[in-house]
Amino acid sequence: MFTNNKNSIFPGFGLSLGYTLVYLSIIVLVPLSAVVLKTTSLSLPSFIAAVTTPRVLASFQLSFGMALLAGLINLFFGLLLAWALVRYTFFGKNVVDALIDLPFALPTAVTGIALAALYSKNGWIGKQLEPLGINIAFTPWGILVALIFIGLPFVVRTVQPILEEIELELEEAAASLGASRWQSFTKVVLPILLPALLTGFALAFARAVGEYGSVIFIAGNIPMVSEITPLIIITKLEQYDYAGATAIALVMLIISLLLLLAINGLQAWSAKQTGRTRQ
């Protein structure tokens, strides 16, 4: 299995791989397997019953629906932002570029209370929307706002490097062959960006489905209306319903794993298309 390393001139294969596997097992694999093993304490019918109560189903619909919607909105505006950052010159561009990563750096609890303050009735944005009869805070739309915030950098940061590497000549060739600007965008640029766009979308979606901190302060957390799945897990834990909490967690873990596989596939496809190595 490891034969070709016998002749390797580097030392430390056993040590570094051994350490990697032991540490990975202790921190990640063993604790995660607890979810699977704990769920086996439930019979199949009671497992299905635990993850299909109306309240849990409503939370799945909400968490996945809002994550999808936020992902689509970020797909559009993320592409626009990446486009502006790569192709245009404007005042403050470096600052905007650096601040795109803010959602990665800002703790989610801070995001949560800031959004709740902004969109509540006396907040800067809430105050403007109130007379129009639009309420964002403490409704499902608050969840959407929070998920847009945390998902945006995923799309911008996967699209931006690909956009930067596109050869000018491709679009010049398209233009000289008579393509309009719109045609050369949809027929030349967009197909190149497609894998990156999908990867960014999938990353943002995966993050949004499990998001907790930035959502709970603004969501209002009304059962059946604005209660996200991670919050149900916490509620069940607080009621010492460990098996119920774990059953829901297992469903979410399986979905995350499928998403992770999809993202890896997309990245491999993207790498193949653009000749870049995985980043």
């Binding site: 604790p31 995660l32 607890a34 979810v35 704990k38 989610t108 995966a206 489905v209 499990g210 998001e211 907790y212 901190g213 991670p230 919050l231 897990i233 916490i234 834990l237 460990y242 909490a245 774990t246 967690a249 979410m252 873990l253 995350s256 794993l257 998403l259 992770l260 993202i263």
Partner: peptide, 13 residues
Amino acid sequence: SVSPVIAGLIFVL
């Protein structure tokens, strides 16, 4: 790709 809530849950388990 694991929800932070699940990350906490596994150590409770």
